[in-house]
Write a protein that binds this DNA or RNA. Structure first.
Length: 1051
RNA sequence: GGGCCUGUAGCUCAGCCGGUUAGAGCACUGUGCUGAUAACGCAGGGGUCAGUGGUUCGAGUCCACUCAGGCCCA
């Protein structure tokens, strides 16, 4: 073995610069590609990238999810897996369209169509592409290793063709159908409004009719269900009445003699005074009650006109009975679907009543409101009416009041597979676990059909063609380009599978009409949810790759994706293959601003990733995200918090690394690759902790526990730096090969443990420590193998012993501080009280270390008896509480009243003491109590957590002198440092003589010389005409109350 | 309005199956420190463990309700 020579490492470092250097190294050595090629043929670990929407620049929350996405694939590569991790981009959909609308100054669909769909879509494609480039820069900079070169893009023809194939599979299983969806609709513009358009048009103080309508109960004389509505025009579409099952209802006889049903809480505010309560009921009692329909304009082939339950029913206003017209309300439609109610669509696309609604045919519905009320009143079905002021949406473009209106659209019948959705979810591991049967599980149990169609332009066109023959319902679903070619009879090789091109393809229908595509495009969540299939252009290509990649081992996104990507992945996979799309899913909380408020563009408190990368680097950003809080929690984030991470963790690690390289290069040691049995206590301890760390981190990563895989590394680095290195400094100065080897092993191992989380600093250290000295080593830490731990090196007893020493040392320092005793002043004795005999043994084993750390000559344990200590018997609540329950407080009190010294000695003799309290006798064994002793006079004491450490405060002359000698050494060292001497320089030291100096040097002269590398120690006698050479750096200070002057010069 | 999550020091977070005096780090103040460290050690101030009620010998921990914040749904 030859002496390793490392590249020198400066104690200070610019992390962003260092990281740029590593990125360059990865590029040069083609490490990303090799992380795949070098694992060819290995078992596969499958990661699926949830495609970000390319409609804006990436924010810090995207860095968060990418950081958590990255950690496990990197770990698995090091574990010897082949991890494909293909990138992907979500490029379709409303967000992209809106961005382009803004760029072009367009507003609304009519203007888009006037502008031209062809050009509009061309712009959408270009816009998506531009943002992808932004994303790629961020992705590379933060060290997220996805393959960007082969990233799937949802607007590619091949991707769309796979989506068509999937839809065709649904079609053939009868899972695709056209149904009604209630949308906010502008009757004047003739178009539904998107949610963001809707939010622009709410007006407060809108006045609408307030109408209380009586629905005649079947089979009950003169009895009515009283319902309330602000939209009388929806009443001809009524098919049911909804109540809240848990609400309280009353049956009353009103002043006019009618029997009315309504919510108890609202009776006083609605009914004319003087009514009589006949009965009180629960909502559930009303379920199924039948009533006479108000109108019969349409033939109906389903059960209707009865009472259903709706969790949307409240007693905030109205009557607690809600009139249900599925064509005109989302809740209504939902209830309609749940109870299989008919949908009576009485209104046409211009907002006018259809011809079948004979009295008001052709009338704009809002204008018909008064006539409808009159008509009901004439039949005695109007209880009362008035006006109602509320907030109502209007068209932001033309100011017409919007209607909620059921529009035909395409649905995926997910509810048909609800049970499978729920069952298959049980096979998925959710982190945090509560999402599984909480948020996600609930959502699945309440699954409703997926509204797939969107009346937009930039999206996957639904591959559905229908005959335009009047009255025809002939429809075909196309599952591939080849199929389409067969239909149209010519090649479609150069066809862009977007609008408007596909819309132009037609062919003759069998019923004499022409087959034309429906105008809708697919919900873009369908695009992303289909990525396991579509990213491979399956089944048209890549069958073999797909077979290996079809189910993800791991996916990760933020919590808002439970109803988004997590759901659509699960739904598509369940419907298509009857298996879960992913096995493990990490669900992240959101990032909040430093003050805990939401981070949003409008508040202007969004953190730009580049600001953080430039200030502190990507590693620190990532480390902060991994260690700050559990991944599922929302977290506060700021540039400052990352700065704290740098100071606390990154710098500690870096400086330990720099320290090691400095002393390694100064000394002459040989790297021991074999696991030589370490001799020194601290070496054994450190390697024990290190191996335990490897085990802990490995186990945590295996169970997707990021916190558990990172925080222990931080704790280890802290003890490495502030305990192991600090206590071993002398050995490093001496070039002790065992110490250097131990520290080397720790740093090289830590670099690997850090590789998945802080890939840059891990690489930096690995390159210098491992690759730089071992020609056999892998080219990159990320191509190297995950470290193995050795159980034989884990010594849990030693770890516990050391933890106790640290505890005692801490308390000892505290005791010193209390008595104003500097650490360099040796003391005669420390008296320690530990909690049990095992700990006493622990401390005895490591007492040299403890004495050294505390600079004390001897250790004693506080015993029960004796003049030096006070004792107190303390009963353990856990043991006595469990044994005697409510007797515990009495025992405690009784014990405290007894003579403590006598009691203590009885317990220490192993005696069981009978305690009498309140006439009862309780047996208290020595195991039930702790005897605490506290030193009396002459000690300074510190106490915490059941431990006590006391140091003697008396100093004799010898101790005092030794203290002076150490003070002198410290001053000389400081002077050396101030004079910029090299650590290894030999010096001449001058000391102005005095009795005190004379005395100290007589006893400790050699010690001082050795410590300070002093060759000549000159005692200067001014009274004999000597003087310190004036040009030398000198220092004056007080020692034992006397003025001292020293000076040094290089020999 | 419904579901899920969160609430512990000025800030970021620990706190196991309920059990001794609720802990770290940052920040602040003081102090100490023998050659790596924008470090580190020690101490101090700073807590109605969001609130109320309950279970229990004993509640930060379990239960119920309330409040505040987040996300999703309506």
């Amino acid at each position: 073995m030859t002496k390793p020579k490392f590249r020198d490492v400066s104690p200070s470092v610019n992390y962003p610069e260092m990281e740029e250097g590593i990125l360059e190294l990865w590029r040069e050595r083609d490490v990303v590609a090799r992380s795949l090629s070098e694992r060819e043929g290995c078992p596969e670990y499958v990661f699926h990238e949830g495609p970000p929407t390319a409609n804006g620049r990436p924010g810090i929350h995207h860095v968060l999810s990418r950081a958590f996405k990255d950690i496990f694939p990197r770990y698995k590569i090091m574990q010897g897996y082949y991890v494909q991790r293909r990138g992907g981009w979500d490029t379709h959909g409303l967000p992209v369209e809106i961005e382009v609308e803004k760029q072009l100054g367009l507003s609304g669909k009519q203007q888009i169509e006037a502008y031209g769909v062809e050009e509009f879509n061309r712009r959408c494609r270009a816009s998506a592409q531009e943002y992808i480039e932004d994303w790629e820069r961020m992705t590379v900079r933060m060290g997220f290793w996805v393959d960007l070169k082969t990233a799937y893009v949802t607007f590619h023809n091949s991707y769309i063709e796979s989506l068509w194939w999937i839809l065709k599979q649904f079609w053939e299983q009868d899972l695709l159908y056209q149904g009604y969806k209630v949308v906010p609709y502008c009757p004047r513009c003739g178009t539904p409004l998107s949610s963001h358009e809707l939010s622009q048009g709410y007006k407060e103080g809108t006045i609408d009719p307030s109408v209380y309508v009586k629905f005649k109960v079947k089979g009950e004389e003169n009895a009515y269900l009283l319902a309330w509505t602000t939209t009388p025009w929806t009443l001809p579409g009524n098919v049911a009445l909804a109540i809240g099952e848990k609400l309280d209802y009353v049956k009353v006889r009103d002043a006019g003699g009618d029997v009315l049903y309504m919510a108890a809480a609202l009776a006083d505010s609605v009914l004319t005074p003087g009514y009589e309560v006949l009965e009180t009921l629960k909502g559930s009692d009303l379920l199924g009650m039948r009533y006479e329909p108000l109108y019969r304009f349409y033939p109906v082939d389903k059960e209707y006109a009865y009472v259903v339950a709706g969790d949307f029913v409240s007693t905030d206003d109205g009557t607690g009975i809600v009139h249900i017209a599925p064509a005109f309300g989302a809740d209504d439609m939902e209830a309609g679907r749940k109870y299989d109610l008919p949908i009576v669509q009485t209104v046409d696309a211009a907002g006018r009543f259809r011809p079948e609604v004979t009295p008001w045919a052709g009338v704009f519905v809002k204008d018909a409101d008064p006539a409808i009320q009159e008509e009901l009143a004439s039949r005695g079905l109007l209880y009362k009416s008035g006006t109602y002021e509320h907030t109502y949406p209007f068209c932001w473009r033309c100011d017409s009041p919007l209607l909620y209106w059921a529009k035909e659209t395409w649905y995926v019948r997910t509810s048909a597979k609800r049970d499978r959705l729920v069952d298959l979810n049980q096979q998925i591991n959710w982190y945090p676990e509560h999402i599984k049967n909480g948020r996600f599980g609930n959502w699945l149990e309440n699954n409703v059909d997926w509204a797939l169609g969107r009346d937009r332009y930039w999206g996957t066109p639904l591959p559905i063609w229908r005959s335009d023959a009047p009255g025809s319902d002939y429809v075909e679903c196309i599952g591939s380009v080849a199929e389409l070619e067969a239909k149209v009879g010519h090649t479609l090789e150069d066809l862009d599978l977007h609008r408007p091109y596909v819309d132009q393809l037609t062919w003759p229908a069998p019923d004499g009409g022409t087959m034309r595509r429906v105008t809708e495009v697919a919900d873009c969540w369908f695009d992303s949810g289909s990525m396991p299939v579509a990213q491979w252009h399956y089944p048209f290509e890549n069958q073999e790759v797909w077979e290996r990649q079809k189910q993800a081992d791991y996916i990760c996104e933020a919590i808002d994706q439970t109803r988004g990507w997590f759901y659509t992945l699960h739904a598509v996979s369940t419907l298509l293959f009857d298996r879960p799309a992913f096995k493990n899913v990490l669900c992240l909380g959101h990032i909040l601003a430093e003050d805990g408020s939401k981070m949003s563009k409008s508040r202007g408190n969004v953190v730009n990733p580049w600001d953080v990368f430039d200030a502190h680097g990507a590693d620190a950003t990532r480390w902060n995200m991994y260690t700050a809080s559990p991944p599922g929690n929302s977290r506060r984030f700021s540039v400052n918090l990352v700065g704290e991470t740098v100071r606390k963790f990154m710098n500690t690690l870096w400086n330990t690394y720099s320290f090691f390289v400095t002393y390694s290069n100064l000394s002459d040691w040989a790297l021991q690759t074999e696991n030589a049995e370490p001799q020194a206590l601290l070496d054994r301890w450190l390697l024990s902790e290190l191996n335990m760390l490897v085990r802990t981190v490995t186990e945590a990563l295996e169970s997707y526990d990021v916190l558990g895989a990172t925080r222990p590394i931080a704790a280890f680095v802290d003890s490495l730096s502030n305990w192991y290195v600090r206590l071993s400094r002398r050995r490093f100065w001496d070039g002790d090969p065992a110490a250097l080897n131990t520290l080397y092993t720790a740093l090289a191992t830590v670099s690997k443990l850090l590789a998945p989380s802080t890939p840059f600093i891990a690489e930096e250290m690995y390159q210098n420590l491992v690759a730089g000295v071992d020609p056999q080593a892998d080219d990159s830490v990320h191509l190297s193998r995950w470290p193995q731990y050795s159980v034989e090196l884990i010594d849990e007893r030693l770890n516990a012993d050391m933890a106790l020493v640290q505890r005692v040392a801490s308390l000892g320092h505290s005791a010193r501080q209390a008595a104003n005793l500097k650490v360099r002043q040796p003391l005669a004795q420390v008296v320690v009280r530990v909690r049990n005999a095992e700990e006493r043994d622990s401390l005895t084993r490591l007492q040299d270390l403890a004495l050294d750390e505390l600079n004390v000559k001897s250790l004693a344990f506080a015993d029960a008896a004796g003049d030096l200590v006070d004792v107190q018997v303390f009963p353990y609540p856990k043991q006595l509480g469990q044994k005697y329950g409510s007797g515990y407080p009495k025992i405690r009190q009784a014990l405290s009243k007894l003579d403590q010294a006598e009691l203590a000695s009885r317990f220490q003799a192993g005696e069981t003491v009978e305690v009498v309290a309140d006439g009862e006798t309780y047996a208290v064994t020595p195991e039930d109590v702790e005897v605490r002793s506290t030193p009396r006079a002459g000690y300074s004491v510190a106490e915490a957590g059941g431990y006590l450490v006391a140091v003697t405060t008396e100093l004799d002359a010898a101790l005092e002198q030794e203290g002076h000698a150490r003070e002198l050494v410290r001053r000389i060292q400081q002077l050396r440092k101030d004079a910029n001497l090299e650590i290894s320089d030999r010096i001449v030291t001058y000391v102005l003589d005095s009795d005190l100096v004379h005395e100290v040097l007589a006893h400790f002269g050699n010690y001082v010389r050795e410590e300070t590398l002093t060759v000549d120690l000159v005692q200067v006698h001014p009274d004999q005409g000597d003087a310190i050479p004036a040009h030398l750096p000198q220092a004056g200070f007080e020692l034992g109350g006397k003025e001292i002057v020293i000076a040094v010069s290089k020999k």
